[in-house]
């Protein structure tokens, strides 16, 4: 059972080496290459997927930032517009107010003028009427002597140049 048989050892070597050579040439080399290629392919795919995910995340980040920026912009624009509209409204109101004030002023002035002229004409009328009334009273109350005396006096008060 434990005796040395060099023949058996030789046969084992021959068999094993033939198996080793055939196996590595025919089966193992292509198999290991295929496995390696597949592993490399999977690793590459994983790496690529990771990169793409990172890219997508970066893109999403950018988009979100852009969206936020746009929102901000829109808010700013809206605010500006509101301010501008407010300003325009204020201006319009101011202008309208001024216009109305001016109109009022002018109307007042006109009224004053009218009043003035009315008053003037009224004054003249009143004076005429008073003069007429006075004439009538005077004509009735003055006699000849008195008239003569008044005219005389009036002539006396006149300047000398009129006589010439």
């Amino acid at each position: 059972m434990l005796n040395l048989e060099p023949g058996m050892i030789l046969w084992t070597w021959i068999t094993f080496f033939i198996v080793l050579i055939i196996l590595s040439k025919v089966a193992l080399k292509p198999m290991l290459t295929a496995i390696k290629n597949r592993e490399d392919g999977i690793r590459e795919d994983l790496e690529k997927a990771r990169q793409q995910r990172e890219e997508a995340e970066a893109l999403l980040q950018k988009h979100q930032e852009m969206l936020a920026g746009a929102e901000e912009e829109a808010r700013k624009l809206l605010k500006e517009n509101q301010q501008m509209a407010e300003k325009a409204r204020q201006e319009l109101i101011e202008k309208a107010r001024q216009e109305s004030e001016k109109l009022l002023e002018r109307a007042k002035e006109e009224i004053d003028q009218q009043k003035e002229s009315a008053l003037a004409s009224l004054k003249a009328e009143v004076a005429d009427l008073a003069v007429g009334a006075a004439e009538k009273i005077i004509l009735q109350t003055l006699d000849k002597d008195k008239q003569k005396a008044i005219v005389e006096e009036y002539i006396k008060t006149m300047p000398k140049s009129v006589n010439n």
């Binding site: 023949g7 058996m8 030789l10 046969w11 068999t15 094993f16 033939i18 055939i22 025919v26 089966a27």
Partner: peptide, 24 residues
């Protein structure tokens, strides 16, 4: 050195053939 084919030699050959045919 006795290179006579023995029972175990044949078994080794069969084992070798089985291994190779498994892979092939």
């Amino acid at each position: 050195v006795d290179l006579s084919i023995t029972n175990h030699t044949v078994m080794l050959w069969i084992a070798g053939i089985i291994v190779i045919s498994l892979f092939v």
